[in-house]
């Protein structure tokens, strides 16, 4: 039991250390990389870090992801938004150490339909946060993971 507790404590220390070292690294080249949003731990904090107050649920956002992912290291997730004037799409994994996985700016002429692959430590809700017309909308889908993606 003690060993397990030691591992847990070590893990959380590593998270803090990683956060600190990330802050020290030169970030000048990534003025647009939203550090606050990528450090946030939950949906509300991510939306706040992006400059919104809260996200409204929307049925116009479709998340394409497996119901059960066998390998948490590679979970394909695609998000399509039918909301008018979609400006950005963000993919969040609720139970990862930091929720925000990826954010896409949808520029003029680009379709509000993006996909990537993310790591998931455990079964969790996946949120898609869409910024459209200055407001934030969210859709959620649960993805079950049989093998976590954080052990390596």
């Amino acid at each position: 039991m003690k060993r397990r507790e030691a591992l847990k404590t070590g893990g959380s220390l590593a998270v803090i250390a990683a956060a600190i070292s990330a802050g020290v690294l030169p970030q000048a080249a990534f003025a647009q990389w939203n550090k606050g949003a990528f450090d946030a731990k939950n949906l509300n904090d991510v939306v706040k870090a992006m400059g919104g107050s809260s996200a409204e649920k929307s049925g116009d956002i479709a998340i394409t992801a497996p119901d059960i992912a066998e390998n948490g290291a590679v979970v394909p997730i695609a998000v399509a938004s039918k909301l008018a004037n979609t400006e950005s799409i963000a993919i969040l994994v609720e139970k990862n150490p930091n929720s925000l996985a990826a954010q896409f700016d949808i520029l003029a002429g680009t379709e509000a339909n993006v996909g990537t692959r993310v790591k998931m430590g455990q079964s969790s809700n996946v949120h898609a946060v869409v910024k459209a017309g200055g407001k934030y909308y969210v859709a959620t889908k649960e993805v079950k993971v049989t093998l976590g993606g954080c052990g390596g």
């Binding site: 394909p76 520029l107 990537t116």
Partner: peptide, 25 residues
């Protein structure tokens, strides 16, 4: 030469990242 998409990744994106998108024109 015209910017069509900017993406920002966190460490939770998988190894050897894949990205799909589409644009008009």
């Amino acid at each position: 030469g015209k910017n069509v998409l900017n993406a920002y990744f966190g460490p939770a994106v998988s190894q050897n990242p894949v990205m799909n998108f589409s644009f008009k024109g």
